[in-house]
Design a protein around this nucleic acid. Structure first.
Lengths: 210, 210
DNA sequence: ACCGGTCTAGACTGGTGGTCCAACCATCGG
DNA sequence: CCGATGGTTGGACCACCAGTCTAGACCGGT
């Protein structure tokens, strides 16, 4: 992580390299992405890249961070009601989920990057990168979980980390499945699907015995 | 797939290469595994390897298949009651899950291989391999799902493929989480954890409105 | 004895991520 | 105005990768 150096680069050069890296990572995933192709596409030299970044992993984390921040800036906030009971809470979750899915459907490159990120979990070489990115959204997940518990919508008998991990696993599976079975008429079918998916998450997170 | 040639190899040579490949794949995952290291460890030459296998992917699938068959042979069958209602069904699932987790805890290399396999899902280069391996356990998942539905324990409003995918996603997340938070006293804590995890799966798969 | 198919060894190819260092150039002290 | 300094760049170079290719060892059948 050589941010201080990188920040000194002219902004247009930053954007050039970020765009090239995003294209490459989105098209080929982390492992099959080629730094040489990124260099060719961006006009940067190898020496410069390794002067500004620690390596492939660092570049990947940087691009993912920038794009994630851009995404969340564009989406605004995700208020979750702590009162009104579980139904109100899950309705809000459904709302946000649908909003995110819709935006991602319109920015396929970011979607591919995120998919690649999630798919790479478990790769020991990327573990540190995973953790760094996870910390980016940790505050949000933490707040969502707390709100859900305050609303009586989320079980309190299991550690939060486990719940977050399971929900991410479900989300990844649903995302992959959605991608493999692209509906013919997304605008009509998507809300129903999202409702079903959130329903499954609700079932998994609901306090037992309810 | 050059099985006929491979089958003609002396069994001890088969075991040698399989053991070396298992070690390598378990230690480094598919992508970071090195065929050269496998060759060095097994004493096989590159020409031989490429005579008997189509390539890295083929070797991986072969090893995974052999190990999976060994695992299921050792575990016997997984009977699931179709009568007795949801409670009986989920109790049986919990039983089987605990049995598998226990066995996997004792065979870390196989566990690592499976983890790598699951983590690699979504990698286009491995898609064919994924499908081949998925077909190996497809009959079992299909039977389990049908039994669950017959017992009234599993929702029928969503396509089976989606349910299987989501359960696999949850399983993977739980497995990863378990690995990262290894309990001090597995024998005592594991049953409770498995109960909670199966409970979450049950919540996700339960027919809505129940 | 020789011939044809089966199998093996390992050099070789084109690619990868990462390292290294000479040279460039902007800034600053004198 | 000049020279020194140190951040920055280009690109040759390295070790290693998966996969290809060919020369020849081996062996059973004729």
């Amino acid at each position: 992580m050589v941010r201080s150096r990188y920040a000194r680069l002219p902004q247009d050069q930053q954007r050039t390299i970020e765009r090239a890296a995003l294209d490459e990572f989105a098209a080929h995933g982390f492992h099959d992405a080629s730094l040489n192709r990124v260099l060719e596409a961006s006009g940067m030299s190898k020496g410069s890249l390794y002067y500004h970044f620690d390596g492939k992993e660092d570049l990947y984390v940087h691009v993912a961070r920038v794009e994630l921040e851009r995404l969340f800036d564009g989406l605004g906030s995700f208020p979750l009601p702590e009162t009104g009971g579980p139904d109100a809470f899950w309705a809000a979750v459904e709302d946000h989920y649908l909003r995110i899915v819709t935006v991602l459907a319109g920015t396929p490159k970011l979607a591919a990057l995120l998919r690649g990120w999630i798919a790479a979990s478990g790769n020991p070489a990327l573990q540190q990168a995973q953790e760094e990115l996870a910390q980016l959204i940790e505050p949000w997940t933490g707040r969502a979980l707390a709100a859900g518990r305050a609303a009586g919508a989320v079980r309190t008998d299991l550690p939060p980390g486990l719940l977050v991990a399971v929900v991410f696993g479900m989300g990844q599976a649903m995302d992959t499945w959605l991608l493999a079975h692209e509906p013919e008429d997304p605008e009509r079918e998507l809300p129903g699907l999202v409702r079903a998916l959130v329903g499954m998450i609700r079932g998994a997170l609901a306090p037992p015995g309810l």
